[in-house]
């Protein structure tokens, strides 16, 4: 029986794969169907995942095991229910309280975390002696790293109109950003091509058995 269900699973996967690929020709009912099924499955998957990985261990299991000992957990549960009040326009204002607590906590945590990891650590890593490297390309690379970081940060300084020398510095910053976006773009294309190869491998191998 498992074998039959495995085969059915492969055919189901092949059907959905072809439905999505049919969009390469033009928008059609098969693609629209598969797209909506994906939205539904995706939403349900994340809901089930959140229930089992966050809600059950952090709230329901603790309350079920020792209600009086964990009675304080009724506060976030109540705040969570207040969050759901956002659904109705008349009770929407109630959701401001849990949102304020979430936003306030996130702001406090983010401020400290980003100050350490994204500002201080990155600045420290850039403050190097570029000439301490062993090879010429490394020395050039270190110089590029320092110049690129300074010019890149300067590009994001929008409080003053950039003209004259500052415009030139900003321009160099843009060049470095473009190189980085190019590298990111290259990796994204490769990742997508890799997924495409995976799907073709599935269709030609697992489904049609044309390749091994």
């Amino acid at each position: 029986m498992i074998s039959i269900m495995n085969t059915f699973g492969v055919w189901l996967a092949a059907f959905f794969t072809l439905c999505i690929f049919s969009f390469l020709y033009q928008d059609n009912p098969f693609y629209k169907f598969a797209e909506q099924v994906f939205v539904g499955l995706s939403a349900a998957y994340w809901l089930v995942y959140i229930i089992y990985s966050i809600m059950v261990p952090n709230l329901f299991a603790k309350l079920a095991a020792d209600f009086s000992g964990n009675i304080i957990l009724l506060i976030p549960a109540a705040l969570g229910l207040m969050m759901l009040m956002r659904i109705h326009p008349k009770t929407q204002w109630i959701s401001r309280y849990p949102i304020a607590i979430m936003v306030g906590t996130t702001a406090g945590i983010s401020m400290l975390r980003y100050m350490k990891s994204d500002i201080l650590q990155q600045l420290t890593a850039t403050m190097i002696n570029p000439f301490a490297a062993d090879t010429t390309p490394e020395v050039i690379g270190n110089l590029l790293m320092i110049i690129g970081t300074i010019c890149g940060v300067y590009f994001f300084y929008f409080s003053k109109k950039q003209e004259g020398v500052s415009k030139a510095v900003s321009k160099v910053g843009i060049w470095f950003l473009m190189v980085s976006f190019g590298a990111t773009f290259g990796y994204t294309v490769m990742a997508r091509i890799s997924l495409l190869i995976g799907r073709l491998d599935f269709l030609l191998g697992d489904w049609l058995h044309l390749i091994k």
Binding site: N142, L144, M145, T149, L177, F181
Partner: peptide, 9 residues
């Protein structure tokens, strides 16, 4: 190098 510089910026 250049990519790291831009990412740092």
């Amino acid at each position: 190098f250049p990519n790291t510089a831009a990412q740092r910026a």
